[in-house]
Amino acid sequence: MCGRFTITVTYDELQKYVEEKYEIEKISPDFRVPNYNVAPSMDVISILHDGKRYRIGLLKWGFIPSFNPDDKIGFINAKAETVFEKPSFKKAILNQRCVVLADGYYEWKQDETKQPYRITTDQKLFAMAAIWNTVTDSSGKKIHTVAIMTTKAYGITEEIHERMPVILDKDTEKIWLNPKYIDPLDIKSVLQPYKGKIHMYKVSKRVGSPSANDIELIEEM
């Protein structure tokens, strides 16, 4: 799964990155970076393509399906293997795809130690495949939410957990964000384990607390 991640660039670095990669000239001052411990229910930096251009904004991490608009938690992940079958996701996977920006994610070793690790890639910032939805709750409030796609772990990440987020490269991201791709076979071809270089190292158990958010969290133990 993917339950915590990091985006440790500065505001200026993020602005430069999205301008060069997505031709987005201005980002919101509301973007909270650096963030050393992004947790569910937080607003996450997301990018989609509206058919004409890339757009960037904040989505609440915890996908709320349209048939349950008053859900307070939502789904933080959606499995690549079953996303087309789930009533909660089958519309979004075809028409409401986006990416969530990160530069690392945390995972806990599945044994008695519960040791957290931070996992990074050969990309300074990477795009995690995601799906979004907008609902209006019973109070009339619109809520924009997102779930991160996961797939089977690959390489060294298999040592600590059986799942990992779907991390896109330049080519697969173009397919994922292109709204013209609605063939499930094309979409499934993108939902694969990341085959680029991956680095993994132990970090402090303090990362388990959503209130902990400082640079020491990403230091190697």
Score class of each variant (00 low, 15 high):
57 G>A: 12
57 G>F: 15
58 L>V: 08
58 L>P: 11
59 L>G: 08
59 L>T: 09
59 L>Y: 10
59 L>K: 12
59 L>N: 14
60 K>M: 10
61 W>G: 03
62 G>N: 09
62 G>L: 12
63 F>D: 07
64 I>K: 03
67 F>V: 07
68 N>W: 10
68 N>A: 14
70 D>H: 04
73 I>P: 06
74 G>R: 12
74 G>Y: 06
75 F>E: 12
75 F>D: 12
75 F>R: 13
76 I>N: 14
77 N>E: 13
78 A>Y: 07
79 K>E: 05
81 E>R: 04
82 T>H: 04
83 V>E: 07
84 F>N: 03
84 F>I: 01
85 E>C: 06
85 E>K: 11
87 P>R: 04
88 S>L: 00
88 S>V: 04
88 S>P: 11
89 F>I: 08
89 F>P: 14
90 K>I: 01
91 K>L: 00
91 K>Q: 09
92 A>P: 14
92 A>R: 13
93 I>K: 12
93 I>E: 07
95 N>I: 01
95 N>H: 13
96 Q>P: 08
96 Q>T: 08
97 R>E: 00
98 C>P: 11
100 V>S: 05
102 A>D: 03
102 A>M: 04
103 D>S: 10
105 Y>L: 01
106 Y>K: 02
109 K>P: 01
109 K>G: 00
111 D>W: 04
112 E>K: 14
112 E>C: 00
112 E>D: 12
114 K>Q: 14
114 K>V: 04
115 Q>Y: 10
115 Q>R: 13
115 Q>E: 06
116 P>C: 02
118 R>G: 05
118 R>D: 05
118 R>L: 15
120 T>N: 04
121 T>W: 09
123 Q>N: 10
124 K>R: 13
124 K>Q: 13
126 F>E: 13
126 F>Q: 15
128 M>I: 02
131 I>N: 11
135 V>T: 04
136 T>H: 04
136 T>R: 05
138 S>E: 06
138 S>W: 07
139 S>N: 14
139 S>Q: 15
140 G>P: 03
141 K>I: 06
142 K>L: 07
143 I>M: 03
144 H>I: 00
145 T>Y: 00
146 V>S: 00
147 A>Y: 00
148 I>T: 05
148 I>Y: 04
149 M>W: 07
150 T>I: 11
151 T>H: 13
152 K>Y: 07
153 A>R: 04
155 G>Q: 03
157 T>K: 11
158 E>S: 11
160 I>H: 14
160 I>K: 13
160 I>Y: 14
161 H>S: 02
161 H>R: 01
161 H>L: 01
164 M>P: 09
164 M>N: 10
164 M>D: 08
166 V>P: 02
166 V>I: 03
167 I>V: 06
168 L>C: 09
170 K>H: 12
170 K>V: 09
171 D>Q: 14
172 T>N: 14
172 T>Y: 12
173 E>T: 01
173 E>H: 01
174 K>M: 09
174 K>P: 09
176 W>G: 06
176 W>L: 03
176 W>H: 05
177 L>P: 15
179 P>L: 05
180 K>G: 09
180 K>A: 07
180 K>I: 00
181 Y>V: 02
183 D>A: 06
183 D>R: 10
183 D>Q: 08
187 I>R: 07
190 V>R: 07
193 P>K: 06
193 P>V: 03
